[in-house]
């Protein structure tokens, strides 16, 4: 019922504050103006030059690292380095029943799982005929997505990891090499109390560099992918 007031607010005062109210995905572009460019990427060969003055100095911790003590010390024997494997000395009913029980209870999750997602994905990309520069086989979007999957390391244990959105402005030359890489929502990330967001940002930057060059894109439509906006945000598990 009070429309006049909100409208006048909207048209005048609030525009300035608008950038602070993050209402949706499209909104945060506002902040790109305040963005601190993360780095310029001219990957020239590094040589052993003295670190620049901007280098973070070595922080001296104020005190010595002290010994920590425990009263009433009685050392337990050292832990075995590995879980002792089943001995099969003489035949013993107890051992046998234990083996049976162990077998019954063997946990498939017990070993550390390592799925070589990276390699699997790389193979997929090649299969799709993208890697070998055959033009027009795949859209730039699909190409970039497939290319990023093995490189982008997501920390799924980070707090609110699915909200840690990283927006990137990526400029490539015709060979698909990175010319400019800007994190356009850096201000928001730095302001956040969730430090995991900063870590996620660095993960994305590393991923983009590790995956470069993006040479599977067709030079014919270079204008289309010369500048891209990439939004990294972990989706729901499949």
């Amino acid at each position: 019922m009070k429309f006049g007031l909100p409208i006048s607010f909207a048209l005048h005062g609030l525009v300035l504050f608008g950038g602070l109210l993050v209402l949706g995905k499209g909104v945060s572009n506002l902040q790109s103006e305040e963005v601190i460019p993360l780095k310029i990427v001219t990957v020239s060969e590094q040589t052993n030059i003295k670190p620049s003055q901007k280098e973070i100095p070595i922080k001296e911790l104020p005190q010595d690292v002290p010994q920590v003590s425990v009263a009433k010390q009685e050392l337990l024997p050292k832990a075995p380095k590995k879980i002792p494997t089943e001995q099969t000395k003489g035949f013993n009913l107890d051992d046998f029943s234990k083996m049976v029980e162990d077998a019954r209870d063997k946990d498939p999750e017990a070993s550390v799982q390592k799925v070589l997602v990276g390699e699997a994905q790389a193979a997929k990309v090649t299969q799709n005929g993208v890697g070998d520069k055959t033009d027009l086989t795949i859209s730039p979007g699909d190409y970039i997505r497939a290319k990023m999957e093995p490189c982008w390391l997501i920390d799924k244990g980070a707090k609110d990891f699915q909200n840690l959105r990283i927006e990137v402005k990526l400029e490539l030359n015709e060979k698909g090499e990175i010319q400019v890489l800007n994190i356009t929502n850096s201000a928001q990330i730095i302001a956040s109390p969730n430090n995991g967001w900063r870590a996620a940002r660095e993960n994305v930057v590393s991923a983009l560099h590790e995956c470069a060059p993006y040479d599977g894109l067709s030079a014919l439509n270079y204008d289309e992918w010369k500048i891209m906006k990439l939004n990294f945000q972990p989706g729901d598990e499949e």
Binding site: V117, Q121, R145, M148, E149, L153, I154, D155, M228, F232
Partner: peptide, 10 residues
């Protein structure tokens, strides 16, 4: 060109 990237690996 705007691309949403939702898949990475752990």
């Amino acid at each position: 060109l705007e691309i949403d990237i939702t898949k990475g690996n752990s």
